[in-house]
């Protein structure tokens, strides 16, 4: 845990739709240190993908808009970069991997062409050098016969192979930050495991920082150093993997962990979180989890809780952390 490579402060992102303005991200604070893997977890629509895309300014504007806040990548504010400068950062300093490898590759271009085009755009290399580097990259991600494979088209590869190519493509310019948006969701479980191992290997070899977006806690447990739990456009709890899995504080985090099936506890029923997330057209004033929270108090619906710092790495936004909360929660439960 050395230097911060990325600092997101009070980020607000909205999307204008015909129905009104959706406040997808509502004041997110996140830090990422060099060489670590941060997992952002949360259910669909909680703003995790939007937050990640905004780092590279890949949100379609309009309708999307960064309303407020800053995204500092190595001290430079991404929200204020020119488009041209942004293009120089994309793929070079920050790379992104998308969810579905079946659609993330252009079906009409060879794999080799797609692998090298980023390199040729950003670095002064000949086609030969670029090809050689691409072959090295394919070797790194574990694709056999890379020389031959370079000339093939995406349809000639399986899903897992394609995701390896997508990863190779993201890493070819040696970025310092890799954002992986649900990189294993579209893959079957055995391939998932291989891809996650690959992430670990790559991080060890290149020292790249990774932001991993997922709703799969199994994936998180395998690769994340730290975890940020998002709910309704806010980060409600951050902590190390150990802290989140063994000492979850936020009722939502607890709820998420309860709803994961476990192999070691036979016959136990899953406990789902009742209800649905709030409508982000008009998000609630207080804690957005109030309506679904088993320990909700009066104050929860009115004022958003302040952050409670439990350790150097563990932060929670919940009124239950307040000293005065205990007697209230006792009365609620009885």
């Amino acid at each position: 845990m050395l230097n911060k490579i990325l600092e997101i402060h009070n980020l607000h992102i909205s999307f204008k739709t015909f129905g009104g303005e959706v406040q997808a991200v509502r004041g997110v604070n996140l830090d990422l240190y060099e060489g670590e893997t941060l997992a952002i977890v949360g259910e669909s629509g909680c703003g995790k993908s939007v937050t990640a895309s905004s780092i590279m300014r890949l949100i379609p504007t309009p309708p999307g808009q960064i309303k407020e806040g800053s995204i500092l990548f190595k001290g430079q504010d991404m929200t204020k970069c020119s488009d041209k400068k942004m293009r120089g950062i994309r793929g070079v300093d920050i790379s992104m991997i998308f969810q579905d490898p079946m659609t993330a590759l252009n079906p009409t271009l060879t794999v080799g062409d797609q692998l090298t085009e980023g390199l040729r755009q950003h670095r002064r290399v000949t086609k030969k050098e670029a090809d050689a580097q691409a072959v090295d990259m394919l070797n790194l991600v574990g694709i056999p016969n890379p020389d031959e494979r370079m000339k093939q088209y995406p349809y000639q590869f399986s899903g897992g192979m394609r995701q390896r190519i997508v990863i190779a493509m993201a890493l070819i310019c040696e970025p310092e930050l890799l954002i992986a948006d649900e990189p294993t969701t579209a893959l079957d479980v055995t391939i998932q495991a291989q891809i996650l191992q690959l992430f670990n290997k790559i991080q060890k070899e290149t020292g790249v920082s990774i932001i991993l977006i997922t709703h799969d806690l199994g994936v998180v447990a395998k690769v994340a150093d730290r975890i940020a739990v998002m709910y309704a456009g806010k980060v409600v709890e951050t902590g190390t993997r150990r802290e989140i899995f063994y000492e979850p504080q936020h009722p939502y985090t607890k709820g998420l962990l309860h709803s994961v099936p476990r192999l070691d506890q036979k016959g136990e029923k899953l406990i789902p979180i009742d209800g649905t997330p709030p409508d982000l057209f008009s998000p609630p004033e207080g804690c957005p989890f109030t309506a679904r929270c088993p320990a909700a108090m009066e104050v929860c619906s009115r004022i958003y809780p302040y952050s409670t710092v439990r350790s150097e790495t563990h932060e929670v936004d919940c009124w239950l952390q307040d000293e005065r909360a205990e007697k209230y929660s006792a009365t609620i439960q009885s």
Binding site: M56, L58, M86, R87, G88, I89, R90, G91, V92, S95, M96, F98, Q99, D100, T103, A104, L105, N106, P107, E117, G118, Q121, H122, V166, M169, A170
Partner: peptide, 11 residues
């Protein structure tokens, strides 16, 4: 998606 990928490459 592959258009998003292409943009993410900084093309």
């Amino acid at each position: 998606d592959y258009i998003k990928t292409a943009r993410a490459k900084g093309l």
